[in-house]
Structures are given as C-alpha cells and as structure tokens.
Simulated assay, not measured.
Amino acid sequence: MLDIIKAIILGIVEGLTEFLPVSSTGHLILVGELLNFEGDAATTFKIVIQLGAVMAVFVLYFRRYIDILLDLLKFNFRAKKLNAIHMVLAMIPALVAYLIFKKLIKGVLFESPTLVLVGLVIGGILMIVAARAKRRVTAEETDDITYKQAFGIGLFQCLALWPGFSRSGSTISGGLLLGTSQKAAADFTFIISVPVMLGATALDMYDSREYLTSDALVLFLIGFIAAFVVAMIAVVTFLNLIKRLRLEWFALYRFVIAALFYIFVLM
C-alpha cells in the first residue's frame, strides 16, 4: 500500500511538472529522495511514468500529428509548414546523445540529488540569458520554424539529459536564442516531446526489462495513470502559462526549490 501511495504521489508530481520548464525528472528524483523511493527499479519507474504525461500532449495535439503523418505519406514537405523533417532533425541529437551517455545518465546523474540541484540552477541561468537575449524573431509560429532552427533546438534538447535542466526549459531557451517566439518554441517543444519520450521510454524499458515484474508493472501502471489524469487536467492551463509568462519567473522558482532542498534535506 505504501508503494502505491508513492507511485500516485510521483505520478501527480510528473503530471504537474512535465509541461513547465522546471524539470519534471529533477522533481521526480528530489521527491523520490524524500519518499525513499530509489534504486534501479525506481529510476525506470520515474522514466516510464513520464510517458503518461506525454500522452496528454498526444491527445492535445492529435490533429497536428495526423496532419504531419498525412503530409509524410504524401511526401509533402513544404518549407513553411511543420513537418516530419523538422521533428526528425529535432529528435536525432538527444537520442544519439542518450545512446552514447546512457550509463552515465542512469548510473550517476539519476542517482545524485546534488547534481539535480546543479542542473536546476544552471538551467535557470540559461533561461534568464535566453529570455533577455535581444534576437530578431524570425519564427512567430511553429510553421515558421526552419530546418536549421529545428536542429538547433534539438541540440539544446541534449541538455535535458542532465536531470534538473528540463527538456522544455532547454528547448524553449534554445528556440529563443535561435530566433523563435516563446509561443512557437513552446508549441514545438510539446509536439516533439511525444516521439522523443516514446523512443527514450522504449529504450529504457528494454534495458530495464529485468525490473518489469508483475508487481512492478502494477506500480508503473498506477503512476502512468496518475500522471496522465493530472496532466490532462493541467495541460491547457500550463500550456497557456508557458506561452505567456516570461522564463525568468520559472528560473526564480528553480532557484528557490534548489535552495530549499539543499538547506532542509542535504545540509
């Protein structure tokens, strides 16, 4: 029963934080530390339940994915429209980096709350720099994003492999630095999250198949459902929030969380 409660709590945390540039993975690691929910199986659980929140994005952007798929089947790759090439270019860097540094990420970064706090702080600094950078906006909407910008955003997404940096925080910051509006960067971030997380989760589940016992699967399912339900409730509000609120406010939140956790838990 205690593990089920922990799974629900972590699912709620994931659903609430996945769409904000505050690092859902970092929050899961810190909350897992507080709940004494750690180890290889716990690491796999924290990754798998992210898929629950990401599925909420799939539901929200379903028509957009169908549009992209239809264009792919028709080999229609118009320059002034978001298409499968944009998504592939944005996905490749992080997936390649994950395959190369997988052992380091899961063996060191996921096991260190201190490194998560470092990621929260450095990621927050990046967000402030990006928000205050005076760059000419060349992509007001997602359909205006170029292939070059998509690949550049994909490179910034590699930073999210460090728990605490935040995938949305890294990619939105990258978008701003590369000339997209915050709205376009946020939309693009959420759209590419589904294939990226599907790929990362599939790889992780294969590598961690020894932990996918019947008992563990029950906890995974509970966490997945909790994350999906909470994310569906929060998604519209949070998507509007991230598109309108300046990144500095999220950076401030990250600094406060990092400081409080360090003072009251790690000291």
Rank of each mutant, 00 (worst) to 15 (best):
I145K: 02
V256Y: 00
D71Y: 03
S23D: 02
V22L: 02
L70N: 13
L28T: 02
T146I: 05
V96H: 03
I12G: 10
S214C: 08
N240K: 14
A139S: 15
E14R: 00
K80M: 08
I68C: 05
K74E: 11
L126T: 06
L178K: 10
I172Y: 05
V31W: 00
F224M: 11
G119C: 03
L60R: 11
I9R: 02
A90T: 01
G174D: 04
G123K: 03
L260H: 09
M87N: 10
I47W: 02
D144G: 10
I4G: 12
L221E: 05
G169I: 01
L217T: 10
I8L: 15
L177C: 15
G179I: 04
D204G: 13
F58H: 04
I128G: 12
A160N: 12
A150V: 11
A160E: 09
A94Q: 06
A41G: 15
A258I: 00
D187S: 13
T142N: 06
A160G: 09
V218E: 13
D40P: 15
G179K: 02
F264V: 07
G124R: 00
L219T: 11
L73N: 09
S193A: 15
Q157C: 13
A84S: 14
K102R: 12
I242D: 05
L120Y: 01
G154M: 10
R64S: 12
A53M: 05
K243G: 15
V108Q: 04
A84L: 14
K106I: 12
I4H: 13
F190Q: 04
A251R: 03
L10H: 07
V196C: 07
D67I: 10
F19L: 07
V13G: 01
A131M: 07
R78E: 14
M205C: 10
R246Y: 13
W249D: 05
A216E: 12
I8G: 14
V137E: 08
S168E: 01
V57F: 08
D3T: 13
F19D: 05
L126N: 06
F19Y: 12
L20G: 00
G32Q: 01
W162G: 03
P195A: 02
D144F: 06
T237I: 11
D67G: 12
V194E: 00
S23Y: 02
F250W: 09
D3E: 13
A41Q: 14
